[in-house]
Each structure stands twice: as C-alpha cells, then as structure tokens.
C-alpha cells in the first residue's frame, strides 16, 4: 500500500509538470462523455421513456456505468496501455524487480485525467438521484458502493484480458474495445433495453448486467433484495482473467518476444 502511494505521488508530480496538457485532457474527457449525455438528452426530448425507464433513471444508470469505467481506467490504465509497455521493453524491467508483476503494472500508469469523466458521471449521478424519487436508505448507498466496486473490477478484468493477449500478439486487438469502450458507451442504458438475448449474454457470459441492470432494479425498488449483492458475484470474473494473465506471463518468459 505504501508502494502504491509512492507510485501515486510520482504520477501526481509528473502531471504537475504539464498542467495545461493535463487540464486539456480533463476537458477532453469531459467533452467526449458530454456527447454521451447529449445523446440521451435529445432522445428523451422526443421519447418520455424507454422500456419502462425514465430519463432520470437512465441518467442514474449512465452515471454509475461511467463512474465504474472511469475508476477502472484511472487505476488499471497500465493494463489498458499494456501493448506499449511490452513493445518498449518495460516489462523486462518489471520482471527484474522483486515485486508482483500485476502490482507493478497497476502502478506504472495512473491516469488522473479521467477525473474529467468522473466529474461528468457524478453530475449525472446526482441529477439522476434527485430526479428519480428514490427513497434512499443506508443499504441502497451500500448497494451503489458495491456497484462501483464490482464495476471497476469487471472493467479492470477486461483490461487484464487485453493485456494478456498482448503477450501473444498485438495485432487486431482493436476488437477488445467492444468489451471496454463498447460496454461504457452502451452501458448508458440499462442492459435490458437491448433485448432479452443481450441481457442473458450479459448475465451469464460476461457479467455486465450484474454490475448495472440488476442492482439498478434494486435501487428503483423493482428488484429482489439479493440483486444488490450481484456485483460481488461479478468480482469473481477477475479470477479467469488472472489465470489468463499468468498464462501470458509464462508465455512471455518462455518466448521472450
């Protein structure tokens, strides 16, 4: 933990060297996700609801998904940009240090400019909360915290998968965007609106519905109580990702690519 603190401080100091550029990328993050908001806003100027969800409920959902993603991206950025870490030989350096590789990769990049998106997400989130007439209790606040935790873990899991594939090939990895950027982009609406098949896929194969749709139903008082705990189950998704990572590292060590 102390080591991570050091990593964090170093990133903070680096950023301070380029304040303008940092502020601009924050602004960029804000604007890019602002388009997301505009899309929702104008759709709801025309339609009052979608598959039973109102404007404020969708904003709540969008805010939470965006927060989950931004958290993962800010802290697991090392995995997200792992291709360049491997191709620049930085991974060799990581291997000659007596610490866990995963931890070092986590520390190697911390993307604080994602704060631009976090701000946006928080604004949507707060608006969603205030306008959706949810009766807030302590357990619901805890459910939101679990969603953020589970969501960050699931998105990080996909970053880890991406990084593991980088050990084998860096060609054609663009398709992984489907699971990361795609999930962020389309996670703005509750998963159920995309139809039953997508919902099933996102429940049993990739656990997106567990960190978004089901706990959201709980928040809106239309779901079972145990829905609130599903994000914890989603965290299990990390296990196969880590296995894949181990396989990737073993491949790297035996092929030295």
């Amino acid at each position: 933990m102390k080591l991570y603190g050091k990593f964090f401080m170093i990133h903070l100091k680096s950023i301070m060297q380029y304040k303008t550029s940092f502020l601009l990328s924050c602004l960029g993050q804000f604007l890019v996700s602002f388009n997301l908001f505009l899309g929702i806003y104008f759709m709801f100027r025309r339609f009052s609801q979608v598959e039973g969800f109102t404007y404020s409920e969708v904003l709540l959902c969008c805010g939470i998904t965006l927060l989950e993603f931004s958290l993962a991206e800010a802290f697991a950025r090392g995995f997200d940009t792992f291709g360049s870490i491997v191709s620049r030989g930085e991974f060799d350096r990581i291997l000659v240090r007596p610490r866990n590789e995963i931890f070092q990769v986590l520390g190697s990049r911390i993307e604080l400019s994602r704060i631009g998106r976090v701000l946006q997400a928080i604004v949507m989130f707060i608006y969603g909360i205030r306008a959706s007439h949810i009766h807030w209790t302590l357990t619901k606040a805890a459910a939101v915290a679990l969603m953020l935790l589970g969501g960050a873990v699931v998105f990080s899991g996909f970053f880890v998968i991406y990084a593991s594939i980088c050990f084998f090939t860096i060609e054609g990895l663009e398709f992984m965007n489907i699971f990361t950027d795609g999930a962020r982009e389309y996670g703005k609406y509750p998963v159920s609106i995309y139809g039953k098949k997508v919902l099933q896929l996102c429940t049993f194969v990739i656990p997106y519905a567990l960190i978004q749709y089901y706990p959201l139903l709980y928040l809106l008082d239309t779901g079972e109580a145990y829905y609130a705990l599903l994000p914890l189950a989603a965290c299990l998704f990390m296990l196969p990702c880590l296995v894949l990572w181990k396989i990737g590292v073993r491949h790297y060590v035996s092929s030295g690519s």
Binding site: L3, K6, R97, P98, R99, Q104
Partner: peptide, 11 residues
C-alpha cells in the same frame, strides 16, 4: 523521486 520509489520496490 525515482530512487525513493525504488527504495519501496526493493524494500
């Protein structure tokens, strides 16, 4: 600062 980080990494 890099040195301080290495101090932590190598304990």
């Amino acid at each position: 600062d890099s040195f301080e980080l290495l101090k932590e990494i190598y304990r």
